[in-house]
Amino acid sequence: MMKRTIRLTVNGKQYVEEVEPRMLLVHLLRERLGLKGTHIGCEDTICGACTILMNGNAIKSCTILALRADGANITTIEGVAAEGKLHPVQEAFWEEHALECGYCTPGMVISAIQLLKRNPNPTEDDVRHGLEGNLCRCTGYQNIVKAVLSAAKKLNKRTKSD
């Protein structure tokens, strides 16, 4: 199995890596680049704990080959807080107590960021459907939904005052 060299940008930093074709992106991020904020839950495309942003789209990094990250711009949970200041979604998760064990949280935050970018004024139903790809075993989702709705308000206030 011939290794290939890929070039990718993760959280603003450029990397050059040699990978086997069968390497999954989540393993590249965690084992090779040391970015362990992205979690592995089911490894079977169901739980969404591995969700990251690739070229602006939320994708499950356990179900994509690392080779597909060649030339890509990736944001993991480590890159969400800009210059040490929490993203409004992270702030809202904190304020609304939307995490207990925290295992699903990185994936939830990333999915929420995509949800709000595509739909800045979601209803509760929109949020529940928009997070279908992310499972949580602790919270029962109530506070996660509250957090996303709260983050929507924060983001809308921010754009208004820009």
């Binding site: 495309t45 969404g48 969700t51 789209n57 939320a58 994708i59 499950k60 179900t63 994509i64 999915s111 995509q114 949800l115 928009g130 279908e132 790809g133 992310n134």
Partner: peptide, 9 residues
């Protein structure tokens, strides 16, 4: 189909 993440790819 699937979930939002799956629909992106």
């Amino acid at each position: 189909i699937g979930s939002p993440q799956v629909r992106n790819l």
